[in-house]
Design a protein around this nucleic acid. Structure first.
Lengths: 156, 156
DNA sequence: GCCTTTAGGTTGTATATACAACCACATGGG
DNA sequence: CCCATGTGGTTGTATATACAACCTAAAGGC
């Protein structure tokens, strides 16, 4: 057994290949890193960047259903359901049964709008930090890429 | 200067600005989307892409401590601790007290190497799908950006 | 008008993640 | 030697996420 057995000739080890190329490990790293930047900035307001993003959708798209939020953000309906549960607890949004047909409607509340206003400067700071971290090009490309995935999946 | 009406009022709503520019909502979207692609592909093996990524680090970097894994992947030590707990349960790695000094050492097991081998083709399929989703340029830029963040943070 | 189908939401379970508090022990000072 | 300190890991708690199972009520078929 002095020498490397024939099997030894993997052009590259599975581990090497995944480490060098895997897109998942990279997007997950960026997710952790950037989410931490925003969450830290927003902490004084007691809101997370994920919740803020949902709030933005509700604010912009007027009365809409939880299912619509899920579609727009490509999230599981159960995830949205539980996020909204917390947000309703804070009084940022209300959920009421739809008058017309089935389903329910979300509406942003005064408290929610207030939060958006107060969050803006903190968000801007985080956004700057994030941009510095990614670099102009990285940031721009991230936006372009995400927006393309978005429209394919039907951001509408 | 020309004319665009004096935007005396909110130049743009807070919600509009965040929706149009926020990097966090975008990286989070990509994370959900890509992780789903890989997790679905890997499901037959009962491993998640996050676990696979940790396993790759252990495989490549030989015996190393949980803390080293955390540093390398920019994860919380507690997160790593619990991920490893599950992976140890599957027998993919072992954790033993370090002979020299303090701390512990992780080693990949035969089962773990086997898993890497079996995962490779499934991972390749997922990687192709992911690349198709992002586009060549998006994928390349994601790799470049993540790798730069990585080295700054000290991937070494 | 009933009954079946199905869409929209919630609940159960599990992983991933992070912050804070804690614990255990190796190390270093005296 | 023994104690003080600091590092590495685990545990407690909370959010984010997803899949599967379930529930309820609207829609449709007949």
């Amino acid at each position: 057994m002095g020498r490397a057995p024939t099997k030894k000739r993997h052009p590259r080890d599975a581990a090497d290949q995944m480490a060098d190329e895997c897109l998942a490990v990279r997007v997950r790293l960026l997710n952790r890193t950037l989410s931490a930047v925003y969450d830290e900035a927003l902490r004084p307001l007691g809101v997370t960047v994920g919740q803020l993003n949902v709030l933005v959708v509700v604010a912009k798209r007027g009365p809409l259903s939880p299912g619509d939020v899920a579609k727009r953000l490509h999230m599981e309906k159960s995830t949205v359901s539980r996020n909204l549960e917390r947000m309703r607890g804070h009084g940022w949004v209300t959920l009421s049964p739809s008058r017309s047909g089935r389903g329910q409607v979300l509406v942003i509340h005064a408290k929610g709008r207030k939060l958006l206003e107060r969050a803006l400067p903190l968000w801007e700071k985080a956004q700057e930090d994030a941009e510095a971290l990614l670099g102009q090009r990285g940031a721009q490309s991230l936006r372009r890429t995400a927006d393309s995935v978005w429209s394919r999946g039907g951001r509408g």
